[in-house]
């Protein structure tokens, strides 16, 4: 009977389709990308080996540096707007007794919507002609001076795009953090309350240590997702106006598929992959260290 679960033929047959597709569509292209990064190639003429020059070019490329800086801002705004707000809302959600599931379900709803659809609605919200939702509200509350085409203004484009991303993804982190809060044993909170802890102290010393792992996962997921953010920036501003809202991903896409600089585009793509992996490792390290202290 042991041999039944050691049937090598069955094992191979069960694994083979998954392994083949996974290697063909995920693993092999990564290796190929890293390889292409060493070449100069327009996709038509023969590839020219240029060694590390594509990677060196990254550091002196002002457009790339600008995109990297924008990406950092995008990340910070979204961490506050997604994970930060999600945490506050999740805490509120634990305080209500009736309709919890209903609220959770509706808050989560934007997560399942298509970026193209959500972006199109927000493009109209941000517009001035005809006045969109945001500009009408500004006018109504007497801040008419701030009315502007938010996505078309260099100073506000990046933040405005980031807000769409916040709207779409906040619910995901809300559900994750909420489930962490619900897993805190009720008697722990009860006895802390008896000891006189409440409000911020109760959160800081009782709840936060309990949901730390969940928060770490949420932050890592968010950072990982935001370094790869593409759909919403691409659909709304495509990096513009000028390069005011250019992110590394949109810059990579343009370099490869609009300018046909496949070698340089691959180098940027490899940068995105390394950056994502590095960010996760650094975050894990930071959180582990603060773990040791407490």
């Amino acid at each position: 009977m042991k041999s039944t679960l050691k049937n090598r033929k069955a094992w191979l047959l069960f694994l083979l389709p998954s392994l083949t597709i996974f290697i063909f569509t995920v693993i092999f292209p990564i290796i190929r990308s890293a390889w292409l990064g060493f070449f100069d190639w327009d996709g038509v003429t023969p590839m020219r080996f240029t060694g590390l020059s594509n990677y060196q070019k990254l550091f002196s490329d002002l457009y790339f540096r600008n995109a990297l800086w924008n990406n950092l801002l995008y990340l910070i705004i979204n961490l506050a707007g997604q994970v930060g707000i999600a945490l506050l809302l999740a805490l509120l959600l634990t305080k209500i007794t009736w309709g919890c599931n209903f609220f959770k379900t509706v808050y989560f709803a934007p997560t399942i919507l298509s970026s193209v659809a959500v972006s199109q609605a927000f493009q109209k919200f941000y517009a001035t002609e005809p006045p969109g939702v945001f500009n009408v509200i500004l006018q109504k509350v007497g801040l008419g001076g701030f009315v502007t085409p938010w996505l078309g203004t260099a100073q506000t484009a990046l933040t405005s795009v980031a807000l769409i991303e916040c709207y779409k993804n906040m619910g995901l982190y809300l559900v994750i953090i909420y489930s962490g809060l619900m897993a805190i044993p009720a008697d722990v909170i009860e006895s802390a309350r008896m000891d006189g802890a409440s409000g911020i102290r109760l959160f800081r010393y009782i709840k936060l240590p309990y949901i730390k792992d969940v928060m770490v996962v949420a932050v890592i997921m968010a950072v990982n997702g935001l370094l790869k953010a593409f759909d919403i920036p691409f659909v709304t501003t495509n990096g513009g106006p000028g390069s005011a809202s250019e992110l590394v991903t949109t810059y990579m896409y343009k370099t490869a598929f609009s300018s046909a600089r496949y070698g340089y585009g691959s180098a940027i793509a490899v940068f995105i992959a390394l950056e994502s992996i590095l960010a996760v490792l650094i975050l894990q390290r930071i959180f582990n260290r603060s773990d040791g202290k407490e």
């Binding site: 996974f22 569509t25 292209p29 990564i30 292409l36 991903t249 990579m252 598929f257 793509a269 992959a273």
Partner: peptide
């Protein structure tokens, strides 16, 4: 094998676009 597959979760799809396009 499990670790090998889980590697795929962190990998950004952008890295595969150019090679897949050519393939």
């Amino acid at each position: 094998l499990l670790s090998f597959f889980l590697l795929g979760i962190t990998i950004p799809i952008h890295v595969t676009l150019i090679p897949l396009f050519q393939i």
